[in-house]
């Protein structure tokens, strides 16, 4: 089995190399300021698709945690949300690069850029919330609740807000590339290949992350003997302090 996995890893590496080479052999795209750099699109396009799929999957895992209170669902949700954030970051980074190459500025507060930045802020807030709660059960339930509450605004910011009439008019970012059949021929095949490779990679990373998360759960816990840095003392709790004994000196 281990040998098979090793071969599969090699196969994946070869496929990734082949798709990368293929992406450089296709003719430059028409209608761009710098056509050769339009290849950034091969990564810019599949990442939000995978991010959305993983984001919705995280929503399902969060719901399952709240319904069952099985901590394994929280581990799965955390793994999925981490991968989602990575895909959002790659989308944002490739978008910023594309903006500089095509529109001549790294950041221009385009509605699509800004709405995506807000999505990232929601995800960072999710991690901030997780990091601020020490108790594992409470951390799991609160972060699941926050994620489900944030899912609506996230989908609104990605799919509805940039398509609002007033917003779409003032944005340079295209919103109808697929609907209008602008992605076709070899470009469409390369995007599909990139999407497939990124899906395989994310499934693999997800599996590893969940495995590591479940192993961490099996670690022995020392209960109250451990110092919990995330929790603050409950106000009525009075912690004992050491007072120097002056009579001994």
């Amino acid at each position: 089995m281990e040998k098979l996995i090793k071969y599969l890893k090699w196969l994946f590496a070869l496929a990734a190399a082949a798709v990368t080479l293929w992406s450089f052999t296709v003719p430059d795209a028409a209608g761009f300021q710098q056509p050769e750099f339009a290849r950034v699109f091969f990564w810019h396009f599949p990442c939000p698709i995978l991010g959305t799929i993983l984001g919705l999957t995280t929503g399902w895992f969060s719901y399952k945690y709240l319904a069952t209170h099985d901590i394994a669902w929280d581990v799965r949700a955390e793994a999925a949300v981490e991968l989602t954030t990575i895909f959002w970051l790659v989308t944002m980074a490739s978008g910023i690069l594309f903006s500089e190459l095509e529109w001549g500025t790294w950041w221009q507060w385009d509605p699509r850029q800004t709405s995506f930045l807000l999505v990232l802020l929601i995800y960072f807030a999710y991690f901030a919330l997780r990091g601020s709660i020490g108790d594992e059960t409470r951390k799991a339930s609160h972060s699941a609740a926050y994620y489900l509450a944030a899912l609506g605004p996230t989908l609104f910011l990605i799919y509805v807000f940039p398509r609002l009439h007033q917003i779409a008019e003032s944005s340079l970012h295209p919103t109808q590339s697929i609907m209008q059949g602008q992605i076709k021929g070899e470009y469409a095949y390369i995007i599909l290949a990139t999407l497939a490779l990124a899906s395989i990679l994310s499934a693999w990373l997800y599996r590893l992350r969940v495995k590591a998360g479940l192993l961490l759960l099996e670690e022995p816990s020392y209960g109250n003997l451990e110092t919990n840095r995330s929790d603050t003392a409950h106000p009525p709790v009075v912690r004992p302090i050491r007072v120097p004994d002056e009579s001994r000196e």
Binding site: L121, L129, S132, A145, Y146, A150, P153
Partner: peptide, 30 residues
């Protein structure tokens, strides 16, 4: 709706005063 929900989420967390704003604002920007 959002601020009440976020208040409940951070009520027992560390640095809750700052955290309430940090997690509520992104949800409220749309």
């Amino acid at each position: 709706g959002s601020a009440t929900m976020c208040g409940a989420l951070v009520a027992r967390a560390a640095n809750r005063a700052m955290l309430a704003g940090a997690i509520a604002v992104p949800l409220l920007l749309p």
